[in-house]
Design a protein around this nucleic acid. Structure first.
Lengths: 111, 111
DNA sequence: TAGGTATATCGTAAATCGACGATAGACAAT
DNA sequence: ATTGTCTATCGTCGATTTACGATATACCTA
């Protein structure tokens, strides 16, 4: 069973002199990085970036993984906010969330 | 017991029209992303970036985690190539691997 | 309404992650 | 040589990830 990722244990103490922006900053970047922490998901993102949109079925065809496995990777990307899925009749049309991509690029560039 | 991360199952088939650079590209980015896929590791990287170098003990003081846990996170960052550790007497002096950081920024920017 | 297609979810198994305390190893100082 | 300090590794536990087949769900089309 695939469950939603639990919130990791705080990596800072309450008494610590750590600005709130810095904490959320680290958590945001960790969440986005986590979405890309598997080659299959990187490939999915690349595929979606190379098109304006993409049917789920097309993604499955590009990967040597079971349909259910691809669906799980897509769910992870959706939870992280990196992709969006839109129902289009009997299919689902996926596309990149450009705002999230921009945020990721900004966070990495600002490292 | 902490073991080295195993190579994930290929996310491409042999017959696929996929250029080798693209495959290694995805794996490289996944590996670097995976290193940053935890808030504690993001914070460690940020800490190292704010200084030219940092003793392991200083890092432990900044985090409300056990010394062994911090050491594990550092190992993950080392395996991914993002940080380097240099023995300095009884301590270990950690620093960012600037080449790896540059590679990460390039890979993300090129997404 | 029945059938076919496309996608998500369920259930499961093996592997990995993340945390900790305990311990081992390396080094400096006494 | 002995002691103390610093760091890495070991061993363990529970939670998560990744994979798959099977099944449920949603939606067109006939």
């Amino acid at each position: 069973m695939v469950k939603a990722k639990a919130v990791p244990k705080k990596c800072y103490s309450d008494t610590e002199q750590l600005s709130l922006p810095d904490v959320t900053w680290a958590e945001d970047l960790a969440k986005l990085s986590w979405a890309l922490a598997h080659p299959a998901r990187v490939r999915i993102v690349r595929l979606l970036l190379s098109r304006t949109s993409c049917m789920c079925g097309e993604i499955v065809e590009e990967m040597p993984l079971a349909q259910s496995t691809v669906s799980q990777h897509l769910k992870i990307l959706k939870v992280a906010g990196l992709v969006q899925g839109e129902i289009d009749g009997p299919r689902v049309c996926y596309c990149i969330n450009k705002a999230a991509m921009a945020k990721l690029k900004l966070l990495i560039a600002d490292l």
